[in-house]
Structures are given as C-alpha cells and as structure tokens.
C-alpha cells in the first residue's frame, strides 16, 4: 500500500469516528452505536454512564479471561467501553491503556473515564501500526472491530507481537471475510471505514498473525450457512499467543470451551453487522 493510500484511509477513519464522537457528545449515540451495544455487553455495561458507547462487533473482554494485575492494551479504544470493562477485571493492581488516533474519541473517552471514576485506565493518542509502548510490556491485547480499518495490518501484528510479553495473548474481535471482495469495493473509502473492504480473508488473517510470530492462532466465525447469497463479511473472534513465557500465559480459551458459546450471539443475529455492502458494522 502506498503512503498516500494509507493517509487516505486514516483520514476517512478519523472523519467517520470523529463525527460519531461529536454525535455522542451532542447527546445522540449516532449511526452504528445504538441497538447492539446493549446486546454485545448484556449485563456488563448497564452500570456505565450514558455516552460510553461501543461501535464494536464483539466483546473481547468477555473472552479474554483477564486476570487481576494484568496490563491490557486496547487497540482503537474509541469511547473507552472495553477499557472500563477490562479495568474492572484486572483490578487496581492492573492497568489498561487505550490507544486511539481520533481526537474527538479520545476526548469522549477521557470524559467517560472521569464519569466512570476508574484510576487504572489511561488513554494515548497514537496509531496501532506504531505502538508507543515498550517491548514485552503488555499481558493482553484487546481490540474491537478496529484492525480491519488499518492500512497496514502486518505492521499492527508485528507491533502487537513486540509489545506483548512472551506468553502474552492477542484476543480481539474483528470483521473478516469468508471470501475475497472486488477491487471496486476495496477502493471505496467509505466502505473501508465501515469495516468492510479493509477486512482480511480468514486464511490470510491467520497466515499474517503466524508470520508476525504468533502461535495458537485461531479465527473463530459462525459456521457457513452454505447459502449462495451469504455475506462475505462476518464478525470473528481472533485468538493468538506470543510464544514463550512458560506458565505466564493464561488459557486463552475459557474453561469448558465457552468461547464458542460466546461467539454465537455477538451481533450476528442482531443485525449489528449485516452482510450487505452499505451498512456500517462498527
């Protein structure tokens, strides 16, 4: 990808999410947020104040099996919802860092942080392709429907592997493709920032994570219906682990294979990410 193209993608993404943050600040949750945040976070987000919205396609915190004291990094933290939920799980001895490049979202997240009153969440302005953290400083990376927006996914995966401790977990929700989409769709910036044309085909996602040095890579999507008109886009849960660190890595699948059960309701039946090419999914 050319630098110019990467800049175009970033501009389109910032514009879209900046506008959404302004809508929230003005009292309206805006396109993409209403309706399904409550489904994704059933029972968890109810205690959070108004304005703590999610544009995600899943709830990575629910599957991350976060432990007390862990350091968590959220790639593309948006309004901060996942950070606040993660902060609760890691407790006061742990900490959560939210990374986002959109001023308006960062301002909204900071306002929400004050409302929620959590001390162990910090927001940073930056890009997920050049993470401003030390090597091997993070236990778990979470992200909710953001990596598909990146113009350089290999850089994201390389940086994720770098900042994770040996044995650290990469546990994200994302939009992936069951099959390739057309070049015309790829070129459409509006589609890109709606998490569609930037998504990777499942096997490609897996291969790139492995190339970045991850192991135990798994991209979980609901079974194909086999229908001819089945949408290419689908919400996925992605699990991967940085090798090493014997005994330090926590199980990345919850006991009893609960990740499968958690996968099913993630927005797929509720219309959060419809397969048609015009609706936004995050």
């Amino acid at each position: 990808m050319t630098t110019e193209h990467a800049d175009d993608v970033r501009s389109a993404v910032r514009e879209r999410y900046g506008a959404r943050a302004r809508e929230v600040a003005a009292g309206s949750a805006g396109e993409g947020a209403s309706g399904y945040a409550s489904t994704l976070y059933a029972g968890e987000a109810e205690a959070l104040p108004e304005g703590v919205v999610s544009y995600g396609c899943g709830n990575p915190v629910a599957i991350a099996g976060l432990q007390a004291g862990e350091t968590v990094l959220d790639l593309g933290s948006g309004a901060g919802l996942d950070c606040f939920l993660a902060a609760k799980q890691v407790g006061p001895s742990g900490r959560v860092i939210g990374l986002d490049m959109t001023d308006e979202m960062l301002a909204l997240a900071e306002t929400n942080r004050e409302k929620v009153g959590v001390a162990n969440v910090e927001f940073r302005k930056g890009v997920i392709e050049q993470i401003p953290l030390d090597d091997a400083s993070v236990d778990v990376i979470i992200s909710n429907c953001v990596i598909n927006l990146s113009p350089d996914k290999d850089a994201v995966f390389d940086e994720a592997a770098r900042v994770l401790r040996p044995g650290g977990r990469f546990q994200v929700s994302d939009i992936v493709l069951r099959r390739p989409v057309s070049e015309a769709e790829q070129a459409d910036m509006e589609l890109w920032s709606a998490c569609k044309s930037g998504a990777l085909v499942i096997d490609d996602y897996t291969a790139r994570l492995r190339a970045a040095g991850f192991e135990d890579v798994e991209v979980l999507v609901p079974d194909s219906t086999g229908a001819e008109d089945e949408p290419a886009w689908v919400s996925a849960l992605v699990n991967a682990r940085r090798p090493g660190g014997a005994g330090t890595g926590q199980p990345w699948v919850l006991p009893g294979g609960r990740h499968i059960e958690l996968l099913a309701p993630i927005g797929l039946e509720s219309g959060a990410c419809r397969g048609d090419s015009t609706s936004a999914c995050c």
Binding site: T71, R95, I97, E122, R124, P132, L133, D134, D135, V138
Partner: peptide, 15 residues
Amino acid sequence: MRPDLMEILACPVCK
C-alpha cells in the same frame, strides 16, 4: 496521564 505509566511508554518511532 499518571506519571507511573511512564515506565512502559516508549517513542512510537524508535521505541
């Protein structure tokens, strides 16, 4: 930001 977060912050370019 809290100053104690400094310990894991790094330059985005050279780390």
